[in-house]
Design a protein around this nucleic acid. Structure first.
Lengths: 127, 127
DNA sequence: TGATCAATGCAACAATGTTGCAAATGTAGT
DNA sequence: ACTACATTTGCAACATTGTTGCATTGATCA
């Protein structure tokens, strides 16, 4: 078992994601947060944060990869992010709707493992 | 209004997507279909087919872009693909579940425009 | 404080997608 | 069938996103 270290890059990136309250893309983090480290380091830190269960990956409706802070799941957890993500077509922010639980019935013989639900529209702040 | 032409590349790509019955990625099309044309041409043909309403874009759970044939919507249509897509973790195929309509209630002040639902699991053919 | 192993920076590479431009080709009109 | 012309194609170049190897730096623990 590899153990993670608490480095400056890790601290800053995690803080930035948590404080934003949104799902951030790689460029968001690179340009928005004050940190100055290599592009590659950001990728590696994000992967580690995801392994640790502090952050989860969100794929936006256009395929953009984003990362959001985890509130409902810990490191040991199975990382089931059954909640809905909301992509605002006005301010282009992606947020987690932790409480919304979609209902769904699959046809016979289909076995469901994970769900990835993204709704686009106008968010509360923009409407 | 630009009008589209019926070229060899267009015909072959559309045929291949329709016959497969699945959502195909760019490499799937380039390598799988017998056609030999430039990589760029495939991108452009796919964009045109999408504008025409014959094909729609599906983002897989890992962010891979795929294209599937449209059955429910025509060119003039608003292209609302409210149906669910199913990504099989065994055979890695992505299919449209046209009939499955998820139910969902958003919090106050959120306005829904489009939904992008992908379920991963084991498909009917694999189980 | 020193040993050890994770983390970083750098360079190189791969995959995916876009753009400009000249040449080729499909389509409509005669 | 021929012509004119806009659409499509191929090619080259470029942008973005993500990964890998390797030497160096730095965090953690005894």
């Amino acid at each position: 078992m590899k153990q993670f270290r608490n480095t400056a890059a890790r601290t800053e990136i995690l803080r930035y994601i948590c404080e934003s309250g949104k799902a951030l893309s790689h460029p968001d983090i690179q340009e928005g947060s004050g940190i100055s480290c290599d592009r590659v380091t950001i990728y590696r830190v994000l992967n580690r944060l995801q392994e640790e269960g502090l952050v989860h990956k969100v794929i936006d409706i256009d395929g953009t990869v984003r990362y959001a802070a985890c509130h409902t799941c810990g490191a040991g957890n199975a990382h089931t992010h059954g909640h809905v993500h909301f992509s605002c077509s006005k301010c282009h922010s992606v947020t987690c709707l932790e409480r919304v639980q979609p209902e769904l019935r699959l046809p016979r013989k289909y076995k469901m493992q994970e769900v990835h639900f993204i709704v686009s529209g106008i968010c509360a702040a923009c409407s």
